[in-house]
Design a protein around this nucleic acid. Structure first.
Lengths: 109, 109
DNA sequence: CCTCGGTGCTACGATATCGGTAGCGTATAG
DNA sequence: CTATACGCTACCGATATCGTAGCACCGAGG
């Protein structure tokens, strides 16, 4: 499966609308989690893997490749993987989700 | 795969923290898209399927079951599937994502 | 009674994706 | 020459998803 990017067809939508590309990109297993775990700063491949419950390196590498291609994550020599500017903005856009989850958990947990 | 819910272990996290349950729930294929397509009001199973590019009924049913169990979606007799109050709130929490995607697409599309 | 169209949904085989383990090639330090 | 850590790949079994067909139910119409 190719990485989802705006301006071209993605899984489940031929429109190329950015929101569809975003929903495709983020709707893959571990993608949201990986982004979430990068919120505290750059991390090595293995650190990231440990934070994500030792997910298989195959999948982690695949997700990181997709996120890099999307310009959301960057691999900096020395420090490891980190959020690119677009990734920082994405994480901010996801902040309300954290608040929602807290309320949701309070009502249903 | 059981549905993700706050307060109990989910895929990739035994903590039971609501945010982890949310990331698990939303990080499954088509979940975000289904929620997104419900933003315009109640829809029947088949309408929803058509909007989601005719995804297989197997998966749609599974996603709807998970979302219902999570209290995000409700099946109302007569009108079809619709967002529950928690679902409305979730969609609002996802609104910044739409704005982010638009900017992202402008820069990279 | 029957058909017809719409509903939500299931069965089932094919395919794609993911998971788990081992280990490679490189680099750096002792 | 170890020893360690790095990013990553190969391999293969397990799981999730896809695509198609079609079931059981209901209400409207004839």
């Amino acid at each position: 499966m190719p990485a989802a990017r705006p301006g071209r067809p993605v899984r489940g939508s031929r429109s190329g609308r950015p929101i569809m590309a975003a929903l495709d990109l983020l709707g893959r297993r571990w993608t949201l989690r990986v982004l979430w775990e990068l919120r505290d700063g750059p991390q090595t491949f293995r650190e990231l893997r440990a934070r994500c419950d030792e997910l298989s390196p195959t999948v982690l590498n695949q997700r990181l490749a997709e996120l890099r291609e999307a310009g959301v994550v960057a691999h900096e020599e020395g420090s490891g993987y980190a959020l690119a500017p677009d990734g920082e903005a994405l994480l901010e856009a996801l902040a309300p989700l954290s608040a929602w989850a807290a309320n949701w958990g309070r009502r249903r947990g």
